[in-house]
Amino acid sequence: MTWRQFTAPPDCDYLCAHLMADSVVVFAVDGDDLFVAASGPRDPRIAESLRIPLGFGITGQVAEDGRPVRIDRDSPRNVVHRRLIGLGPGESVSRICAPIPGLYGEIVGVLAAYRNCARPFSEEELTRATELASPLGLRMHTEQLWVAVGRHRAERDRLIAAAISAQEDERRRIAFDLHDGVTTVLATMAFHLNAADLAVRDLPHAQAARAQIAAAQQLADLAYHQTRSAISGLHSLVLDDLGLVAALESLIQGAAPEPGTEVELLADPPQVLGDIPSHAAAALYRLAQEALSNAVRHAEAKRIVLSLRRSGDSLVLACTDDGRGFDTSEPPSARTTPDDPARHHFGLSSIEQRAALLGADLRLESSPGRGTRVIVELPLDVTDRETAFEC
């Protein structure tokens, strides 16, 4: 951890004014060392290499035992420390050091103030420094917790991206294996069945054999088309090659709704949507695929609209239909029909899980007879969280 990781470093000008000091350094505990969290009025970049072991020197001792110290004349030996407080060769300084207590009473740092030896600090000023250190400790503790939260969130986002990418890679591998293996075998089998049909055509009692061959041909064709459909569901080559908008257009074209049902895509152009991380594009595609499938299969709608919009720093994916709808306050079991157990949850469980994994907000709007709208809002800055906490 370095001083730059504090999103709002302590205001050393304020501390200097209240302690009537020439310079102030705020040290923070990092494991067995102290580093400079803030300093002033000197250039804080000087402090980047300054680390003081706990228990070493006056500052390290205050951090270890928690007792404030006042020294009328002091001459720090560390060259970087001297540069930080503006001491020249052979010069001394009056100094006070107050421990900075954290949220639970542990020492999280040291507040050190310095000024010319001609104006040594008093006991009253040491008490004032100790009083200032208490709220400063709460602030520093909160900052450190916030940095830790940012790191965990960034790591979580990285792991989510890796998990989604790995899942898509596995889907891609399975799709290619099916395409190169099963569909090739089925196509070859159809060729041999056609050849068998020609071979037995002029044989006695060929009618029964040809009927069996025709039935096998129908099964082979069915298996071929189902496999092709499974390949399309597993992986979208359009998403890889042309991006999310083109993949959603392809999804609309392959939706196969009931006759009389209109399916439409409304999407901002790619330049408005901006760059979408590959794992986020894949996750949004899967969400759209599931929402559209639910609407086509269950909504009994006349019109289904899939939309993708940019809203500020977020992408908003929505699937809207004018179908039968349902009461969102009902328990899932109440939305299951005996003739169609697949209606359970209307597939929303899958959508909820995907949205939660992606860190997206999910809203469901529906009522009986008034259709359903599924809205997923994905912040575009999820990949920038770690950077934000390093400022």
Rank of each mutant, 00 (worst) to 15 (best):
Q5K: 02
A8M: 09
H18G: 05
H18D: 04
D22V: 07
V25Q: 10
V26I: 11
D30N: 13
G31A: 08
D32W: 09
V36G: 10
R42C: 10
L54D: 06
I58S: 06
T59N: 04
G66A: 14
V69C: 05
V79W: 07
P89N: 11
E91G: 09
R95Y: 14
A98W: 02
P101M: 05
L103E: 12
Y104D: 14
I107A: 14
V108M: 00
A112Q: 12
A112F: 10
A113Y: 09
Y114T: 07
Y114I: 07
C117R: 06
R119Q: 11
E123L: 04
R128S: 12
S134F: 12
G137L: 03
M140L: 15
H141S: 15
V147I: 07
V147R: 11
V147P: 00
R151P: 02
I160W: 03
A161I: 02
I164R: 00
V182H: 09
H192P: 03
L193D: 02
L203E: 15
A209M: 15
R210D: 03
Q212M: 09
I213F: 08
A214V: 11
A220I: 12
H225W: 14
I231E: 02
G243E: 05
L244N: 00
A256C: 02
L273S: 02
G274R: 03
S278Q: 12
L284K: 04
L284S: 02
L284Y: 03
Y285G: 04
A291E: 11
A295H: 02
E300W: 09
R310H: 05
D313N: 14
L317R: 00
D322G: 12
D327P: 01
D327V: 03
P341W: 06
H344P: 04
S349Y: 04
Q353E: 11
R354N: 01
A360V: 05
R370V: 13
D384T: 11
R385W: 13
